[in-house]
Design a protein around this nucleic acid. Structure first.
Length: 555
RNA sequence: GCACCGUUAGCUCAACUGGAUAGAGCGUUGGUCUACGGAACCAAAGGCUAGGGAUUCGAAUUCCUUACGGUGCACCA
């Protein structure tokens, strides 16, 4: 039920739409409001008089039970009985589907996220793209879209020549098999600190060998790639993140030439300082480099090919890139070039930018060993969760399992709680905090709700004409807002709308839980409160699921 | 130098996109255990929304400007 629209319709004024309906600052005033100040101009009356007149003419009914005029605002109170009934019925009937939608049916969304680089382990800086992308993936699916999750592998570049060179000089099979991706990364780091000119020359030669299809060089490369994928797969499983395509940069090797031809044909390409570029000066941007002076392709060239490939293959409705804001200019340039090429779908390409992570003593630096590895963060959170369980609930079954759900949940939730554009200074103190506005708080609330339900016989019939009290109604309103929250989150590409909703609902429920006895209440209260508890648990579960977090039954 | 982003309570952040008294968590202080799970709840203290101008009935939110911080700006990705 869209109350804004309902109210706007009943008001029956030309200049008022559902967008003009706002929420009052506190619920004693009402549930919705219309500020009458705009109307004052056209109606040539004071806002207070207008509100008073509208109040008298507004037809109250079973949906809107009260109207009042205060300080130029027209306040509406919804019929609590009706709303409570509608919401609880809908949540309980929809179950895992509550909040879902069919708005995306027939539309495909491509999401490029996480994009692992071969031979580079994840550090804490890779968390945002992975979990933001993962959450958007689930969110769009929930809203009925077909979603293609794309891991645009960083598998192309001269660094792989360096890596092979380093391996040939210092590495051996056993050590790499044993040490996995970190062993490969160590070799690469060593190359960057120790390599002389001779090795640099060798590295370029190895890169050329990869490119020209040399068997031995490619076998090594594929080996490094498989070790990398094995490593990230473990992390993705923990974080509940999935992909439909691993088409990386190399995949586009043979798909760039048609783009270059097209650019030339459309006379967009011109030479500048020996390189081939698209001039973007009229749009206030530096030129977009397409070919280096030695004829080699660049980052932008591959992204143009990739976007075109995605359009042709998936016919996307939207094509999202979950990449840090460092790349703002790059994507602006690429999208502009697509537009200049006459691709009308360029407007559907969106850079979902997020802020950067640094450490308390400055930026991360692999070379200086100033790195926080993602798997360490995850493991430490799981350990902390296990310790807390040992302390608070030592008889719990499946302690390891639940510690993982809680620990991983804390990591994901922490990364998705703020507006994504904000920079973050990583601290263990913060991720290891399990109190207040955290994923653990939401899970704990769910476990509490579940515990109540287990103690009841689980059978109740929702009473027909039960008027909820203040605490109950706060929970009801929160539950009712979930579908709308999801739509806004998708529109703004902001998973934090979902995590904030989860905390807010948990807070409202906890207040209700403290103030109102559930199991020992009498009359219609008991079945109503059980229904409310069950609906809250369900909705918290659905919200967490979108974020990639599971709800433990006990903890 | 130019461009983009950010700046809200001691700290970390919200604020439904221009609406009423700017809200949470952490921290601090003081409360709530005869428990449906204290990983919780209640209360108090804490704000000239970085400074200055403008638009508006009305601004944390829009525009201009200054300061501070971040990022980017040609052959890396």
């Amino acid at each position: 039920m869209d109350y804004r629209q309902y109210i706007a319709q009943k008001l029956n004024l030309d200049c008022i739409t559902s967008a003009d309906i706002v929420l009052p600052p506190n619920s004693e005033m009402g549930d919705y409001a219309l500020p009458c100040f705009k109307l004052a101009k056209t109606m040539r009356k004071s806002p207070a008089v207008i509100a008073e007149e509208l109040k008298n003419s507004y037809p109250t009914d079973g949906v809107i039970s009260g109207v009042s005029a205060v300080n130029g605002y027209l306040n509406f109170s919804v019929n609590k009985i009706g709303l409570a009934n509608d919401v609880l019925n809908e949540v309980l009937n929809s179950g895992d589907k509550y909040g879902s939608s069919t708005q995306g049916n027939g539309k495909t969304v491509c999401i490029d996220y996480s994009s692992v680089n071969i031979a580079k382990p994840f550090h804490i800086g890779h968390l945002s793209t992975t979990v933001i992308g993962g959450a958007l993936y689930k969110l769009y699916k929930f809203l009925g879209y077909k979603v293609v999750g794309i891991n645009h592998l960083g598998d192309y570049g001269t660094q792989f020549g360096k890596l092979i060179c380093a391996y040939k000089h210092w590495g051996n099979r056993e050590e790499v098999e044993k040490g996995g991706i970190h062993a490969i990364n160590d070799l690469y780091v060593r190359f960057n600190t120790e390599a002389d000119e001779e090795m640099e020359r060798e590295a370029r030669e190895y890169f050329r060998l990869i490119e020209s299809g040399d068997k031995q060089a490619n076998e090594l490369f594929e080996w490094f790639k498989s070790l990398t994928l094995k490593y990230v797969q473990g992390i993705y499983e923990k974080l509940g993140v999935e992909f439909d395509s691993y088409a990386g940069e190399r995949f586009y090797t043979d798909k760039m030439q048609p783009i270059i031809d097209e650019l030339r044909e459309k006379q967009l390409l011109k030479e500048s300082e020996g390189a081939q570029v698209v001039d973007l000066e009229p749009y206030g941007m530096p030129p977009c480099l397409i070919l280096r002076s030695d004829g080699a392709s660049l980052y932008a060239t591959r992204d143009l090919a990739a976007a075109t490939y995605r359009k042709n293959t998936y016919d996307f409705y939207k094509n999202l890139y979950v990449v840090a804001y460092q790349q703002n200019l790059h994507f602006k340039q690429v999208f502009k070039v697509l537009e200049l090429m006459g691709k009308d779908w360029a407007k559907d390409c969106i850079h979902v930018a997020y802020g950067m992570v640094s450490l308390e003593d400055g930026a991360m630096s692999t070379r200086k060993g100033k790195v926080v590895w993602l798997e360490d963060v995850i493991n430490r959170c799981i350990e902390k969760a296990y310790t807390v369980i040992e302390e608070k609930n030592p008889d719990l079954e499946n302690k390891r399992d639940i510690a993982e759900k809680v620990g991983v949940g804390a990591v994901i939730f922490g990364a998705l709680y703020n507006n994504k554009i904000k920079d973050v200074v990583f601290s263990y103190d913060k991720v290891l905090s399990f109190e207040g506005e955290t994923g653990v708080y939401v899970q704990y609330t769910g476990a509490r709700a579940n515990s109540v339900l287990l103690k009841s016989d689980g059978k109740f019939n929702l009473p027909d004409n039960y008027e909820p009290n203040a605490q109950e109604f706060e929970v009801i309103k929160e539950l009712a807002s979930f579908p709308e929250i999801l739509k806004e989150a998708a529109e703004k590409y902001e998973p934090c709308y979902v995590s904030r909703f989860a905390v807010s609902l948990a807070q409202k429920f906890n207040k209700f839980y403290i103030d109102c006895k559930i199991l020992s209440s009498e009359g219609d209260s008991k079945p109503f409160r059980l229904a409310l508890t069950k609906a809250t648990l369900q909705t918290l579960k659905n919200a967490l699921a979108i974020l990639g977090i599971s709800m433990p039954e006990k903890m």
